[in-house]
């Protein structure tokens, strides 16, 4: 039998194998379904009535809008936003598995006839780096400025008019876990943190379920979220960690 105080102290001593090497200040996960939705039904009180969310959570939720074209609410751990062709559920609060449980129950038990033809399992991370040099060198490694020829000398500019890599997206298309889809990772400087220098990495794990005209329900989308959600987030963490490694290597010279 464990003594729980020991567990608490053990945990601060080291992170698990797949933990990112820099602790992100923002770490969100979301599930996006693309298909056909009726935004009006995605009300937080409906979620509570179905037992998808506890009554207490629904009572304290912030409802931004309920409209035929757009519905959005948030709770302590969840944001739900629905348009006619897009459903998004997002969390930044651990345990992230709650998000998958909610989406699987919502569409598996209550909205199973909703046609969904695309699924995205996404991870969005913002992490701080110590200085502008580190930020620049991450950008330089991902998008070497010399490739821009004579313009390269002028790109960086002055401290007041600083240039450099603003956005880069890398895509993996050859994947053995799906017939169609891709993984895209986008790296940009972040302005979301209080830290002066920070990096934003978004990983879009994108699955094509079928043609919009052929798909009649969401069984495959639900099954995908049920089976792949945590592995997808782990893989995303691993991808993000590759970018973090650039910061660490440069920091250590």
């Amino acid at each position: 039998m464990l003594h729980r105080d020991n567990r608490l102290s053990d945990a601060t001593g080291g992170l698990g194998d797949f933990a990112m090497r820099i602790q992100p200040e923002i770490d969100k996960a979301n599930v996006v379904f693309v298909g056909d939705f009726n935004p009006r039904i995605f009300r937080v009180d409906w979620f509570a009535a179905q037992g998808l969310l506890p009554e207490e959570e629904a009572t304290s939720a912030e409802v931004d809008i309920v409209h035929p074209e757009l519905s959005r609410f948030s709770t302590d751990w969840l944001v739900v936003q629905v348009e006619r062709h897009r459903f998004l559920a997002e969390t930044s609060v651990p345990p992230k598995i709650r998000l998958a449980d909610l989406v699987v129950r919502l569409f598996g038990e209550y909205l199973s006839h909703t046609p969904v033809h695309l699924v995205g399992i996404n991870r969005i991370v913002h992490f701080a780096v110590p200085d502008m040099d580190t930020l620049d060198r991450i950008g330089e490694r991902l998008a070497p400025q010399d490739a821009w020829g004579e313009w390269a000398r002028q790109i960086k500019g002055s401290p007041e008019h600083h240039g450099g890599m603003q956005s880069i997206t890398m895509q993996q298309t050859l994947l053995d876990d799906r017939d169609k889809g891709y993984i895209r990772a986008k790296v940009e400087p972040s302005t979301k943190l209080k830290a002066s220098f920070a990096v934003n990495v978004d990983v879009n794990d994108h699955y094509v379920i079928g043609n919009p005209s052929d798909v009649t329900g969401c069984e495959n989308a639900v099954s995908l979220v049920s089976n792949r959600f945590e592995d997808s987030l782990k893989r995303s963490a691993w991808i993000i960690d590759q970018v973090m490694a650039l910061a660490q290597k440069t920091k250590n010279g």
Binding site: K28, N30, V32, H85, E90, N122, I124, N204
Partner: peptide
């Protein structure tokens, strides 16, 4: 947001972007 969602797709670039929004599963539309 509502004004934009309610727009017609008569503009070609608008229509392209709208179609892109229906192909993408990134975290924002």
């Amino acid at each position: 947001a509502l004004k934009r969602l309610a727009r017609d797709d008569s503009d070609a670039v608008d229509a392209d972007l709208y179609r892109e929004g229906r192909r993408s599963t990134t975290n924002f539309a």
